[in-house]
């Protein structure tokens, strides 16, 4: 009789122990834990109203590069710099030629008669056949980090994130001037570049625009470095730019609208020249979390080619038909 009660007690104890173990296992599984009061959920800023997304992704061009670094477009050819190469690719993705580089590229710009490749602190000039014509090293310093090149006729503009300056060179490689974007009034500040995201571009009218990422601004300068106009928009919502360094990249559509690319919350958007948001080209869901801001270029048909550094491919976006 006594043994029977001991057996029942032991069985009950075993059941309780197993129950506690199961409950403990289930309660400590990450997907079983109650919501955390301290969690900061930024998903709402990644979500974009589908009505705002005006573009659709139509094609991807996979790259045979480990570290794509920059893209440019001239006529019907894409110039992709990365590793120690520039690959010349047709708009349909056909590899046309490759140009070997002596060091890692940071930026690239192409015109019908020359190809300019910026490295950390030099600019390499090639002819269309890939022959090295010149190497510009004068005018840069040890702390230079060249990030963008734009060409307007005989004027070559180079953005230096390390020095927070924009340089103007002539085709012979002589530095004509440099400017820091400083103005006398308190409206704006000089270029604020917290990370190596500092872009320059020329629009269809030949105007020079410079991104001031620390001010979330796009600024229009004369070729002499005088501020002519600007617009800026700081916001964590889709209408504006957020974080330390946006817009990280930008380009122009043939009609003059801006295409901007952002880091942090990676997304591509279209703005009117006045700074009014037109719509979204690619929402954050299209990109890797905490990925890099894609570099963007646009062709004459307003197709947008985004160089996705994380997926190592060119992603093509076209406007949806209404």
């Amino acid at each position: 009789m006594k043994n029977k009660w001991i057996l029942i007690f032991l069985l009950l104890l075993a059941v309780v122990i197993v129950g506690v173990m199961v409950a403990d296992f289930k309660s400590t599984r990450p997907d079983q834990i109650a919501s955390n009061p301290f969690e900061y959920n930024v998903d709402q800023y990644k979500a974009v109203d589908s009505a705002l997304v005006l573009y659709t992704e139509t094609r991807n061009l996979q790259l045979s590069m480990q570290e794509p670094a920059a893209i440019a477009l001239a006529g019907d050819r894409l110039f992709v710099a990365g590793d120690q190469w520039v690959q010349v690719i047709g708009l349909q993705g056909k590899l046309i030629s490759e140009i070997s580089l002596p060091e890692k590229p940071h930026a690239v710009a192409a015109t019908p008669d020359r190809l300019l490749v910026a490295t950390k602190a030099s600019v390499l000039v090639y002819d269309p056949a890939g022959k090295l014509l010149a190497t510009w090293k004068e005018g840069f310093s040890e702390s230079s980090v060249l990030t963008s090149v734009a060409v307007a006729g005989d004027n070559i503009f180079i953005a230096d994130a390390g020095q927070r300056k924009v340089y103007r060179f002539n085709p012979s490689g002589e530095k004509i001037l440099e400017f820091e974007g400083k103005v006398n009034d308190e409206v704006l500040h000089g270029f604020i570049v917290p990370s190596p995201c500092f872009d320059v571009a020329i629009n269809a009218d030949g105007d020079l625009w410079v991104a001031n990422p620390g001010k979330h601004a796009l600024e229009n300068y004369t070729f002499d470095g005088n501020l002519r106009g600007y617009w800026n928009k700081s916001s964590m919502e889709v209408e504006g730019f957020s974080g330390c360094c946006n817009p990280a990249q930008f380009t122009f559509l043939p009609d003059g609208n801006f295409i901007t690319s952002e880091k942090g919350l990676v997304r591509i958007k279209e703005y009117k020249p006045s700074g009014e948001l037109v719509g979204v080209v690619a929402p954050p869901a299209k990109f890797q979390d905490d990925g890099h801001a894609p570099e963007v270029v646009a062709d004459a048909e307003s197709r947008i080619y985004a160089l996705d550094f994380d997926r190592k491919m060119i992603r093509v976006f076209e406007k949806k038909e209404r």
């Binding site: 900061y40 800023y45 917290p194 990370s195 957020s242 330390c244 360094c245 942090g264």
Partner: peptide, 8 residues
């Protein structure tokens, strides 16, 4: 989270 999502 804020610094990683929006900054450096």
């Amino acid at each position: 989270k804020g610094c990683t999502s929006f900054g450096n």
